[in-house]
Design a protein around this nucleic acid. Sequence first.
DNA 1: GTCTATAAACAGATAGAC
DNA 2: GTCTATCTGTTTATAGAC
Lengths: 225, 225
Amino acid sequence: MSKTQTPQTNSAADATRMALVMAALQLFGRQGFDGTSTREIAAQANANIGSIAYHFGGKEGLRLAAADYIVETIRTIVAQAFGGAAQIQRVTSEQAEAQIDATVERMVGFMVARPEAGEIVQFVLRELSTPTDALDRIYTGVFEPVHRRLCQLWAAATGEEAESEKTRISVFMMIGQVVYFRIARAAVMRRMDWADIGPAEAAKVIGVAKENVAAIIAARKAGKK
Amino acid sequence: MSKTQTPQTNSAADATRMALVMAALQLFGRQGFDGTSTREIAAQANANIGSIAYHFGGKEGLRLAAADYIVETIRTIVAQAFGGAAQIQRVTSEQAEAQIDATVERMVGFMVARPEAGEIVQFVLRELSTPTDALDRIYTGVFEPVHRRLCQLWAAATGEEAESEKTRISVFMMIGQVVYFRIARAAVMRRMDWADIGPAEAAKVIGVAKENVAAIIAARKAGKK
DNA sequence: GTCTATAAACAGATAGAC
DNA sequence: GTCTATCTGTTTATAGAC
């Protein structure tokens, strides 16, 4: 680690930087980029308005820094989820399905358990609806590698081709059925009569999701014969 | 039809109202509520800034009017989709599954074919992420009735209870796996190498979605025995 | 009903003291 | 590096002419 990145060097300046990034992530996620003023961010970070321009060049720079933070955070989680295994490894269909199940569980778990998850998901959702350079970093750093990895697992589980159109679509659907519970949170809670989507509710979601995945994989395997 | 609602009475004033609502829907959807100025809306509607305050009381009133327009639009589509049938009717498991398939097809088709669909979905997504009074109208007018209707069909197809927790979750997942393609549009297009999500791409999505639904329903029916 | 002019508040960026 | 004061532009809302 040379001077290109300085993770913990200057505690004073870096503390300010970090506080600003965290505040920005939270507020951008909650109120949107346009709905958040730099004054608001500075206030929440216990910094002053000028520090944003100093550290990040401006409001736009803060958005990119928030995106980088998200990539870093998810990467850490994903790395331990996949056990730091290399891209390809020989697994049986059952092992692959178990790993997919574990991933589904982890995805729901992350969205529920992690305190920052709400803001991160909202931030990404907003970027998806109006892509900026920040989405580019998140796509390249998170979306692409995770989706690709799941496609490999899916292929191992079903016997289909990993990079085929059908597999890629299937994996998107598997992700979609789960993250929808966070996206449409407000509607889900109301229709389900849930006061919150906490661990108890997450467990129910995971249960149904696993059942669905198992049914789909079984059908695909049967179709392959 | 009494004077409570005046759909086509005053062509001059109503044309302005309608133009403002359409412009607001489009711009709120694309750029968000905070990201859109009333000047921008007025300009696109070929009206002047003052007319917003006059007709809707202010920017917030326009948001509610846009929500009402969405409810009206979707209601029309849904009505013809379900054939104006009453709440409950005796259908076989196969008929129910066929109706679910048709609904999935219609949902994807709507999101792709309708020119306003993009803005409507985006508008609703933004409301979901930061609920206001507008979401309340959309939930009550669209979300709730449609989800409830699908639950009935799901119950008829699988033999499960219509208002059980599992059924409600399953229906949300069915919706989620499909609408995710619109929500994560930017990421999907990039990963799928699609220049657009048009009719051709929609057909592929529909194909996989139907397969998934069929597999899940079959597994549920088998589990019931 | 429509449109213009203006008010009052607030935005992001910056220059300069410390 | 931090913080304050200020500049410039833009926001919504409104009052009043037509």
